[in-house]
Every structure is written in structure tokens, then in C-alpha cells.
């Protein structure tokens, strides 16, 4: 997977002080389990030198297939893991080598929404407590009032606070995780495949909700997905990852309209769309009439 690394888009990489997140030459190497007593454990390069800049208010999409390194990248951006080398700055502060204690600002300003809400919501906590928990940890004065406000913002009734996660449908659980993520008033929302497990009609509802909230609270959105069409709808900038590298990056309009890297082209060609499929049906349909 090391063949042709495209550098044709490096010019669009604007690592400047206006960025809420900037990464420089980030490498993350994992050790595989040892296979021999005499030889060192083999290493895997999950990220091989990633540079990126995400501006305040930007809606930044990351697309890639499994093993591309997109999950590793967002774990590093969220300070949940440390890079092997390279630098990651959040609001100008270096976070790649900072201690956990000094990262409290990041724990408030960056929040995450995961793919599977059932795996990320404590089944034994009431919804109200789940949403309140980050506020309590940060010493918020009016946690209770804030919960009602947040439930309303994500379109759930106030009575939802007294129920448990299993009493809700998949789409409603995703609303709960969004409410929890928004409770400490973050600047950046990182959404990792937030609609991949949802049905089509629910997906549209959750995407609309995310867009509303991003506008309302002026959030910066980092949106990770394997689904190219969802990223195109949600984001204004997209980075395409493969084999631990960003192979192409640019505005959605440019990347989807005129992809440069062969991998981006292959990915776009492989993604099934209704228009492409129906165009293939049309001639066969109209000839017998």
C-alpha cells in the first residue's frame, strides 16, 4: 500500500494560526505481538506522516476504507492516544506530548460522537445522568437546567432524562450521544461514522440535526465516514486517506468534481449511487414500449 503517494494537493494544506487543529508529520507506529523470542516484535505504521489543518468553523470530512488510519488519526486529534512522532496542536497548544492533567481544556473543547451509541452509553445510567456527567466533571453550576435545554436541542422530550438508553431506538440513542457531546459547550465536535448504523430515514433526521447544531453553536465539525456521499453532503473540505496517509485533500466541490489521485477516482467509481444505477436501467426500459 505504499505505491504512488500523491503530493499534488499539499498546496491546499493551510497550516496557519487560524486553525483550531493542526497536525504536522504525524506518525503512529504500533507494535504487533511478538512472534519470536529472539527477534523484536514487528511494527505497523498506522499513520505515516500526516499533515492537516482544520480551520475554526470548518466542516472537515475524513473518508477512507478500513485500515486507512482514519480512526487512529481522530484518536490522536482527540488526545486519546499519543503519536510516535510529529506534532498536533489544538487551539495553538501542543497536545501530542502533554500530560493528561494539562489536557482538561481539550476534554471540554473537543467532544466525540461514536458509531454505535449502545456501546458508548452506559446502560445502567439514566439518560439525564449520562448527559450531566461531563458537566459535573467540569464543575458546571447549573447542570440540571442544562440537561433539559440539551434534550430539547436534540429533539427529545424532557421526560427522556429519567429513562435508560435501552428504552430508545437507534436514532434516539444517537440523539442522546449528541446531547452528551454538546453538554460542555465544545468548540469541536468529532463524529466517527455517526450515521453508519442507522436506517435511511433516520440517517436523514440525524444528519439534519447535526447540521442544525453545527450552525446554531458555531461548531467546528470533524466528520469521519466510509460513505462518500454522506461526507459530500455534510462537509466543505474532505481528506481521503489510504494506508496511513492523506492521498488527496481539498474542497468537496473540487475533490468530488475533479478527483486527482487515482485512489480517489477508484473510490468514487466504486461507490454505488442511485443516479448511476438508474441510468443503466433506462435504455433497457424504454426500448420495448
Amino acid at each position: 500500500m505504499t505505491d504512488n503517494i500523491s503530493t499534488d494537493n499539499v498546496s491546499t494544506d493551510n497550516v496557519s494560526t487560524d486553525n483550531v487543529i493542526s497536525a504536522r508529520d504525524v506518525v503512529r507506529r504500533y507494535r504487533r505481538p511478538r512472534r519470536s523470542l529472539t527477534r523484536p516484535a514487528p511494527a505497523v505504521e498506522a499513520l505515516r506522516g500526516v499533515d492537516l489543518g482544520i480551520a475554526y468553523g470548518e466542516r472537515f470530512g475524513i473518508v477512507g476504507e478500513s485500515g486507512s488510519g482514519k480512526s487512529t488519526l481522530i484518536r490522536l486529534l482527540a488526545g486519546l492516544d499519543r503519536p510516535t512522532s510529529g506534532s498536533i496542536r489544538f487551539a495553538g497548544k501542543e497536545i501530542s506530548r502533554a500530560s493528561e492533567r494539562s489536557l482538561q481544556f481539550l476534554r471540554r473543547d473537543l467532544q466525540m460522537v461514536f458509531q454505535d451509541p449502545m456501546g458508548s452509553l452506559d446502560p445502567r445510567m439514566k439518560v439525564g445522568d449520562i448527559i450531566r456527567e461531563p458537566l459535573v466533571a467540569l464543575g458546571h453550576p447549573d447542570a440540571r437546567g442544562r440537561v433539559a435545554e440539551l434534550l430539547d436541542a436534540v429533539g427529545l422530550p424532557a421526560a427522556a432524562a429519567d429513562r435508560y438508553p435501552h428504552q430508545f431506538s437507534g436514532g434516539q440513542r444517537q440523539r442522546i450521544s449528541i446531547a452528551r457531546a454538546l453538554s460542555p459547550r465544545p468548540k469541536v465536535l468529532v463524529a466517527d461514522e455517526p450515521v453508519s448504523a442507522l436506517d435511511v430515514s433516520v440517517r436523514a433526521q440525524i444528519l439534519n440535526l447535526l447540521m442544525d447544531l453545527v450552525d446554531e453553536f458555531s461548531l467546528t465539525l470533524v466528520f469521519v465516514s466510509h460513505d462518500l456521499s454522506v461526507v459530500r453532503h455534510v462537509c466543505d473540505t474532505v481528506a481521503v486517506m489510504r494506508g496511513g496517509e492523506i492521498v488527496e485533500r481539498g474542497s468537496c466541490e473540487r475533490v468530488y468534481g475533479a478527483p486527482q489521485h487515482p485512489y480517489t477516482k477508484a473510490l468514487l467509481a466504486a461507490a454505488p449511487t442511485l443516479e448511476k444505477a438508474l441510468a443503466a436501467h433506462r435504455p433497457a426500459k424504454e426500448s420495448p414500449r
Partner: peptide, 10 residues
Amino acid sequence: GRLRTIPGVV
């Protein structure tokens, strides 16, 4: 810029 949805849940 919002998608059309089916109201309610399954």
C-alpha cells in the same frame, strides 16, 4: 440545506 425526512420513527 436540510434533507427531506420521514417524520417519526419505525
